[in-house]
Write a protein that binds this DNA or RNA. Structure first.
Lengths: 337, 337
DNA sequence: GAGGGGCATGTAATCGTTTACATTTTCGCC
DNA sequence: GGCGAAAATGTAAACGATTACATGCCCCTC
């Protein structure tokens, strides 16, 4: 691989000049610049990233730490991050790590000197676990994390509001006995959705019953299992709110297998509004979350911090959600929409 | 941030010794090693990646270049790559780039000195476009790419076989007039699936009819539109093979809206077997592809090349697929499986 | 024609490591 | 106790860039 020296020699200039050409300093005469570019082209030269970042102490890379890389959600987040990063000429270094302190910490260490800042998704309820080992005063944006006094920027989804709105909608359709399929234990998003559910149940005077709160883990299988349990209940609910669309899909198939109809026998709704929700049968009523925007915003925040435009740690924001009404809840949505 | 010098000074040793501790050379006395570790811990020191890779000329990072980061497919590939990379202590730098030579080339340039090797997904039929600008003799594994004499390792999916098997299965169920919803223009996977379809149609003596080959682009919407066109045909086919599951889902919803039944009025099948396929109504018959394995294998190949265990460029392999029969094709699958 | 102000370019220190080579320490053995 | 080999440590030169500072040059002005 050609280095800056090779280019300099062949172009008959000093390395400083070559460097200037690549950092487009205006201090290079046009013909010199042209000659250098030519030689570089011919040699297939391009600046060595590591060398560059060693001296400038900027890597032009942001690190993304996710608990897992599975599923629609993560691919959307990454997409949002990549989109914005690329616009600003930044690279994206991804890594998944179970958020126990240890593997997270080692992931962090090994990113030292490779990234300018981090986007960390640590949805674990135990705030400390996800954040210990983060170097102090390092630019970090937390995603979907419980509130903490960590002093990091934090961005998430208005889970509480979204869940509340969904339950209110169902109540508006006349449902009084509404079940919830909960998300993963210890998951902050799941906890917030549950809180929204409970608040709505209480405030709207719906039937409160511990038997209506079923455990789940965000998987289709869990939704399937939970729905079966619901259907077996002595007093069956008329509607069920699954904490994400994956579980709602599992629930739909369970109801179908039981020979019952959605929404007539049981209304089913979800959360996330994944692209496929509208194509299900019946089309799934869900809470829309713009995940790509979440990733993009996180990136914006991080880049702003990197460029010193923002004081880090000052912000905590929840992206608003929108209720998408389709047929699965029994509302009069005119066909799949 | 503490550097190796700080650690050395505070531990009363030379930088070389500290370095040795971190590269676990056996040439350090146990008590010295312990002292160094202690000081490092206390200072929060960890080696600076850029500096390290500058001198060793190894980054312990593999670059992943994808045409887009959208959807299930990519998230699975990345997951496979990340899984294996992490096991081997490698990082993953992802980037999406439309595979026109230009943006690809710039993506490549900016990765120079940041990655040890590349996994490039360039499904574009124009082989050159996706591969121009790749530095010669750089470790590269191509994903889902058309054959070329580029001299790079190439890994893909047995699209032809998968499609052929699907059509044969449908023919076995008695279908004689089978349509296909094609994938994106210029996409190699799509082309192979089409080729498999045509080969099966010809060899099995099914009805060949240009009107049965509908354009598509892998999106749900395209599947929806194509199905509507099929239903409007004077002589309607009895089955349709969508080139991916997303389009199959769109087709399912279109048939439903038309007030017809799957599979009785029209059998529908897909390709990819995304996790949700089994939860659709009716459960979708599809060609299973282990995408995570694809990513993992690509990573294995690349790492093997990096460690000099393999001569690069020698291999081209197509991962086998398996036919998953469910209800949407009309076969007697006992309920959703 | 001397002086001076820009502009274009060159020189060399620097970033934080690794590692070949040089040097010191340790230790077994006679 | 002295010798020498082996083990432990230190010294300093890389790696490939950026950039403060020095220098040279051209041209203008008086």
């Amino acid at each position: 691989m050609a280095t800056i020296k090779d280019v300099a020699r062949l172009a008959g200039v000093s390395v400083a000049t070559v460097s200037r050409v690549y950092n487009d300093s205006h201090l290079v005469r046009e013909d010199t610049r042209e000659r250098v570019r030519q030689v570089a082209q011919q040699l297939g030269y391009s600046p060595h990233g590591a060398a560059r970042s060693l001296i400038t102490s900027r890597t032009h890379t942001i690190g993304v730490l996710l608990p897992d890389l599975y599923g629609e959600f993560f691919s959307e987040v990454i997409r949002g991050i990549d989109l914005r990063s690329q616009q600003e000429g930044f690279h994206v270094l991804v890594s998944s790590a179970r958020n126990d302190g240890r593997s997270l910490e080692s992931a962090l260490r090994s990113m030292r000197g490779r990234v300018d800042g981090l986007i960390v998704m640590s949805p674990d309820m135990d705030a400390g676990a996800g954040q210990r080992g983060l170097p102090a005063r390092f630019p970090v944006v937390l995603l979907n994390s419980p509130p903490s006094d960590s002093g990091y920027d934090s961005l998430g989804v208005a889970n509480f509001d979204g869940a509340y709105a969904m339950i209110r909608h169902l109540a508006g359709l006349g449902h009084r006995r509404i079940a919830i399929i909960r998300g993963a234990e210890q998951n902050f998003d799941a906890a917030e959705r549950l809180r929204g559910y409970r608040a709505a149940v209480a405030e709207l005077g719906l039937e409160a019953d511990a038997a209506l709160e079923l455990p789940g883990d965000f998987s289709e299988a869990a939704g399937h299992a939970a729905a079966l349990r619901l259907l077996a209940l002595p007093r069956r609910p008329s509607a069920v709110f699954a904490s994400n669309d994956g579980m709602a899909i599992g629930a739909l198939s369970a109801v179908r297998e039981a020979g019952l109809r959605v929404p007539e026998d049981l209304a089913v709704t979800g959360f996330d509004d994944i692209p496929m929700a509208r194509y299900l049968d019946p089309a799934l009523t869900s809470v829309h979350v713009d995940i790509t925007a979440l990733g993009a915003s996180a990136t914006d925040w991080l880049l702003a911090t990197l460029q010193g435009q923002e004081i880090p740690g000052a912000r905590r924001e929840m992206l608003p959600t929108t209720l998408i009404v389709r047929r699965s809840c029994g509302a009069g949505a005119p066909g799949p929409a």
